[in-house]
Amino acid sequence: MDFLNAIILLLNYIFVPALTYGSQLALGAIFVTLIYGILRFANFATGDMMAFGTMVTILITWYFQSIGISLGVLPTALLAIPFAIIFMIGYMLFIDKFVFRYYRVNKSPPVQLAMVSIGVMFVTQAVVRIIIGPSDRRFFDGERFIIKAGEFKEMTGLNEGLAIKSSQVMTIFITLVLVSILFWFLNKTKTGKSMRAYSDNEDLALLSGIDPKRVVMITWIIAGILATIGGALYGLDKSFKPFTYFNNMLPIFAAAIVGGIGNPFGAFLGGYVIAFSEIFLTYAYKKFFMYVLPASMEPETLIQLLSTDYKFAVSFSILVIVLLYRPNGIFKGKVL
């Protein structure tokens, strides 16, 4: 019984949250890696673009709520996301046309494009704060839990409860569906393959007749989809605060680099590597050991390797270690 309690404890506090958080990071990391692989620069506006997509989702959600549209047990935001995606794709293409394109046409070095993306980051950040403000917002409505901790205890008779939030299940499910479609697109369709070819060898892609304008446009469209869904899922599960999205860029970049920058499948797995590492290292294991160890050996401290205040140090350390020892990422395999 104690053993089961210990397992449930880990499921509840580590496994389910890490899987959720990992999915959210994965979407951001794929976004980073796609832009890097195809447009060849590190996009420092990633976090704020995700915040922008989330903000649009929230505004549309509020509008739907105000006119009485809802999805019943599901959050209204799910209905708003497709509209937000369309808006966000427009935003991405707009930024590309008026900012990034100039540097691409002039064949500017990647570091210059990265600097330009920092400019885009500041502007996007400012626009988000002007429109919706810097404060914390919750926009989840509908049924919050699929299984409540109390119900679970009653059902199983265990001491530990397993709570599963609907936002967690939604995040994991939507991520898996979205990522499957994306990989199918990149690996099986002519357009997807042409994007991989362009990322692999730009000159030869041009010699093969692949249209770079089309490749760039589709890249931004995918980026708009990933930014909106990734951002909205994070906001639904936790809350929407623009500054948090900016901060999330560290674990997102770490995930992209762990996966081998330019490799979308690596970025996907990288999201989970970072999320699990972060949560494993900052969880306090005291209760877990109380279950698995005899009472005489009960731990006196929290048995927490790192305080949660230092969770970003985990991504940062992984980032540094990977860059030092495995600069091409920890997964072998093809780029884009």
Partner: peptide, 8 residues
């Protein structure tokens, strides 16, 4: 040089 897509 670079006359194939090595990652494909």
């Amino acid at each position: 040089t670079k006359n194939v897509f090595t990652g494909m």
